[in-house]
C-alpha cells in the first residue's frame, strides 16, 4: 500500500479495470463517469483495458445509426484531467485482431502478467 500525503490529502492509487465492450451494456460508460470523479479528487488514476474492454478504445466509432451517444472521444479528453496512465492487454488485443493503430488514444501495451503486477501495486481496484 502506498499512500502519500499531499497538502494534507491522502492520494491513493486507483486502478479501473475495463472488461466490457461499449454500447452493448452500460459498464463502459459508467466506468468513464467514475474515472472522471476519481480524477476530480486528484487521485493517482490508472485505466486498464482487458478482454472486451479493448473495444472501448476502437477508433472511428459512429453511433448515429443506433441512437446512442458516442462517448469514445472522452478517452482523448482524459489527459486534461491528468489521467494519463492507460494500459491495454496484449493478449486481449491479439485475440480480437486489434493493434495499437486501431485505438483512439495512446496506450501502453502490457502482457497480462505485467498487468497482474500493476494491479498488485494499487491501493484500490474498480472493476467494470
Amino acid at each position: 500500500m502506498s499512500e502519500e500525503m499531499m497538502e494534507g490529502e491522502v492520494v491513493k492509487k486507483f486502478m479501473y479495470i475495463n472488461r466490457r465492450a461499449p454500447y452493448g451494456s452500460i459498464y463502459a460508460l459508467e466506468s468513464l463517469e467514475v474515472v472522471l470523479i476519481g480524477a476530480a479528487f486528484d487521485q493517482d488514476v490508472s485505466l486498464a483495458f482487458v478482454d472486451d474492454g479493448v473495444f472501448e478504445l476502437k477508433k472511428d466509432q459512429e453511433t448515429a445509426g443506433i441512437d446512442m451517444k458516442n462517448f469514445s472521444p472522452t478517452y482523448r479528453a482524459l489527459e486534461m484531467y491528468d489521467v494519463e496512465k492507460l494500459y491495454v492487454s496484449k493478449e486481449s488485443m491479439d485475440a480480437r485482431g486489434l493493434t495499437v493503430d486501431d485505438l483512439i488514444v495512446d496506450v501502453e501495451v502490457k502482457t497480462d502478467a505485467e498487468l497482474a503486477d500493476l494491479f498488485d501495486d494499487q491501493d484500490v481496484i474498480f472493476s467494470f
Binding site: P22, K58, D60, E62, G65, I66
Partner: peptide, 14 residues
C-alpha cells in the same frame, strides 16, 4: 447489422 458495426468503429473491410 451495419449500424452496430459502425457504432463500434468496425469498417466494412474488416
Amino acid at each position: 447489422l451495419g449500424p452496430d458495426l459502425k457504432a463500434r468503429g468496425i469498417a466494412d473491410d474488416r
